[in-house]
Design a protein around this nucleic acid. Structure first.
Lengths: 143, 143
DNA sequence: TTTCTTGCAAAAGCTTTGCACACCG
DNA sequence: CGGTGTGCAAAGCTTTTGCAAGAAA
């Protein structure tokens, strides 16, 4: 079984929560679909195959994913919360093209370590961070 | 006259917009009040002295500030848009204490230049960016 | 059974807009 | 005057929640 599924199921049982068909279906689709989906986008995808699953369930399940650490919430400024699977991979940040809305992930350990340094300077304990670069990709600049 | 007021007035006249009492009052209070205010917070402050100024006017005026570059919109994840005055000062980023909600500004040119490097690598033209470090300040850690 | 979940619909927040009247240039 | 701005209230959106019926343990 996938590591993520395992993490999720363990979280549920640890908390006395239940494993349900809906949660499995939502997790499947969440993992299958690309990253950075909004609640609504995921809901619409799921509804194709499972029209009886409600928006609230998707919403609540995504919160669960976030709580147990298999997904991260993001807010790219379009007024929708987006979720991204964190498949045990390295942390990464985002380049966001304001033209075509494309989201590119990147990762730079040098930036991370400078962040740690800033935090030390201010006697801060960093729990999370986000770095987003907004701009235009080469294609959109040509238009 | 302050540089910011001048910028704002020039923007208005360039666009054929009008300078009004309300806009002046809102700008005054915006500059006087600390940074990182939400629309509502600013509205409440203004209402003390000017109970007849409506929320919508504050909202629309903040948008104007943002358009003409004297304010920046932020979203720190609490569901409210916040505005910060950019008094011609250096760009800076934010350390946000999730305990006491305090917001500390910082600035690190080394991080900025690494960001530029990342953008170059992906053939991106950066128009804006944001870096936010969430965590606990020393006081909140002691509790 | 007992407790947790679900789906629906409704409530909440915050943001945005329509409109009639007021004001600026 | 003509066009823009204001204030109010209402509409829009997304996110949350209450509740009765349904499913897991």
């Amino acid at each position: 079984m996938g590591k993520i599924r395992e993490t999720f199921r363990r979280y549920l049982s640890d908390k006395g929560l239940k494993s349900t068909q809906q949660r499995e279906i939502i997790l499947d689709e969440f993992l299958r679909a690309g990253s950075h989906l909004s609640t609504e986008e995921l809901y619409l995808r799921i509804r194709r195959q499972h029209p009886n699953i409600g928006y609230a369930t998707v919403y609540r399940t995504l919160k669960l994913f976030s709580e147990c650490g298999i997904a991260e919430e993001h807010n790219f400024g379009d007024g929708q919360t987006r979720y991204e699977s964190v498949a045990g991979e390295e942390h990464h940040d985002h380049l966001i093209c304001t033209g075509c809305k494309r989201i590119i992930e990147f990762e730079d350990p040098r930036i991370e370590s400078l962040q740690d340094e800033v935090a030390r300077l201010h006697d801060f304990k960093i729990l999370d961070h986000r770095l987003e670069l907004y701009g235009l990709c080469s294609e959109c600049r040509q238009k």
